[in-house]
């Protein structure tokens, strides 16, 4: 179970906003983390480790930079819930073992609402509003990558088992 509060965004959050071009050549992801969402006051003021990012449609659109998913993973984001995700960001998140859940009901969620989230069932409990939301199940192959903690771990399990 994942618990945390919602840090809410709108539609079309692009990866330039998550981590700007000027930071991509810093030596490590740790060096980039402090610039995550640097122009979003709601994030920089309110985010605490384990919180849940809530987006609208097309979360993570734009550049393929994996640093965007990587800095969110490194800051300890509990999960990202959005109405839809941009393709490359979605793959990057799965590959890194960062939980991404598609949920059509994110309009019902307010900024800073408290959550409990159950990764296996994909069920989301909004404790503040006493609501629960369904999420869209991942294709089995994709879910097995996420469950393994990312594609590298998944490759290792495949090699070990076969």
């Amino acid at each position: 179970m994942i618990t945390g509060k919602a840090i809410k965004f709108g539609d079309n959050v692009d990866t330039d906003q998550i981590i700007g071009a000027e930071y991509l050549t810093l030596p490590t992801i740790e060096d980039m983390v402090k610039f995550t969402f640097k122009n979003h006051k709601n994030f920089t003021d309110n985010y605490q480790q384990g919180d849940i990012i809530v987006g609208g449609h097309n979360f993570g659109c734009g550049s393929s930079r994996e640093q965007a998913a990587a800095v969110l993973k490194k800051t300890g984001v509990g999960a990202i819930i959005a109405k839809s995700f941009a393709r490359i960001f979605f793959r990057n998140a799965i590959n890194l073992g960062l939980m991404v859940l598609e949920c059509k009901e994110t309009d019902r969620i307010s900024n800073l609402d408290q959550f409990q989230l159950y990764p296996q069932s994909g069920k989301i409990q909004n404790l503040t509003k006493n609501q629960s939301y369904e999420t869209i199940a991942l294709p089995p192959y994709v879910k097995s990558i996420l469950d393994a903690g990312g594609i590298i771990n998944y490759m290792r399990t495949q090699t070990n088992s076969g």
Binding site: S63, S64, A69, F89, N95, I151, I152
Partner: peptide, 26 residues
């Protein structure tokens, strides 16, 4: 390609798309 605009090469009748670093490393 490790760049979202890799989709450009469809102009030459190829299929091409952007991927993140982990996919590229694999």
């Amino acid at each position: 390609g490790a760049d979202s605009h890799t989709c450009t090469y469809g102009a030459l009748g190829a299929l091409s798309t952007g991927m993140g670093s982990t996919d590229i490393a694999v």
